[in-house]
């Protein structure tokens, strides 16, 4: 009964709890049957457990409500569309344009997913379908352990290795040879602190998450379906392509969506390598300034500027909303799938 990040997501088949018929639900004894001290303890513990759970159940709402209330001041002064599409960020002048930050977040996150998704899914397929059991037994705990590495460590790795490589080697190379590719040629001299560095670091960070979830989904594909395909003379890859991937699709989508949500809100690792310049990046070698970095760099300071902290909490609310929507989406995919399966 290992606890791992695999439990970080609810998957088809994984959480099939044995349903207990209500008449066999037990423990709610009549007072006569139990001594009063025991009954008291039972009642008290049940009440406590229910109370704590109710609080935790409400916590999500509390977080949303708190952020919403605190961002109301700025929403009262500026309509949301104006804030979202505004490109000028001058808190001192009362201008709060979030667009560069939103764009920065999207660039880094989407890039990370573009890098991570195919590689992680291929790895998951390899581990679930091809690898020898001994290899699997070695790699799987490794992936779990790696999922727990703190984000500053990823960030430091980026600063030490990826940023210098991009700034000193790849960017000059790209400038010389890829000038014709709009996204791939640095406009000016790149320091290496750029969108691409953030994307690579993030991709590495979400890889263990995606792999662990995707592998588990693939392993829950029934062996019979695979064998049916193999016995018709399909090759292993054909079986994977037509049967396993198809059956696992909702779960795989969920794994990628979860990875996306994780990447979207990731702060420190990105903050350390992405440059933090409030402009809309035009190529992979330009710096960006994602929303989480904006909050991390500025919140708690300069609280005297009017509306500033309200603006930052609005940024937090935006992050939260997107992440919640994506998590709900992942859940809906799995849930709809379960429905259809019944």
């Amino acid at each position: 009964m290992g606890v791992s990040i695999r439990q970080g997501s609810r998957l088809p088949g994984v959480d099939a709890a044995p349903a207990v018929p209500p008449d066999r639900r037990r423990g709610e004894l009549s007072p006569q049957a139990v001594g009063s001290g025991r009954l008291l303890r039972e009642r008290f513990s049940a009440a406590l457990i229910t109370l704590v759970s109710a609080l935790v159940g409400l916590l999500t709402l509390v977080v949303i409500a708190a952020l919403f209330l605190r961002s109301l001041p700025i929403l009262r002064q500026h309509p949301l569309p104006e804030l979202v599409t505004g490109t000028v960020w001058k808190p001192l002048a009362g201008q709060f344009g979030f667009w560069p930050f939103i764009l920065g977040t999207l660039w880094v996150t989407v890039l990370a997913m573009v890098i991570a998704t195919p590689v992680c899914l291929l790895t998951a397929v390899y581990l679930a379908e091809y690898a020898r059991p001994s290899t699997r037994a070695l790699v799987r705990p490794l992936v779990d352990v790696l999922a727990g590495i703190p984000s500053v460590v990823y960030g430091l790795f980026g600063v030490l290795l990826i940023v210098p490589f991009l700034g000193d080697d790849l960017a000059p190379f790209a400038q010389r040879h890829w000038g014709f590719l709009p996204w791939l040629s640095p406009g000016e001299v790149s320091t290496g602190y750029c969108v691409l560095a953030g994307g690579i670091v993030l991709a590495l960070m979400v890889a263990p998450v995606i792999i662990a979830v995707a592998e588990e989904v693939l392993e829950s594909v029934p062996a019979g379906a695979r064998e049916a395909s193999l016995s018709l003379g399909a090759t292993k890859w054909e079986t994977v392509k037509h049967v396993s991937l198809r059956l696992a699709l909702p779960g795989l989508v969920a794994s990628v969506v979860l990875g996306f949500a994780r990447a979207f809100g990731e702060t420190m690792a990105v903050l350390m390598v992405v440059g933090n310049v409030a402009q809309s990046p035009r190529s992979l070698f330009d710096p960006a300034y994602p929303l989480p970095a904006l909050i991390a760099n500025n919140y708690g300071e300069m609280m005297s500027i009017p509306l500033y902290d309200s603006a930052l909490l609005l940024a937090a609310l935006m992050l939260l909303t997107v992440v919640l929507v994506f998590n709900l989406l992942a859940e809906a995919v799995v849930w709809a799938r379960k429905r259809a399966g019944q």
């Binding site: 019979g224 049916a228 395909s229 016995s231 018709l232 049967v243």
Partner: peptide, 16 residues
């Protein structure tokens, strides 16, 4: 495998 067809105990229809 193509030569030797298989019919298993539980019908295994493919997801299509």
């Amino acid at each position: 495998r193509r030569k030797m067809g298989l019919l298993s105990q539980k019908p295994q229809v493919l997801p299509m």
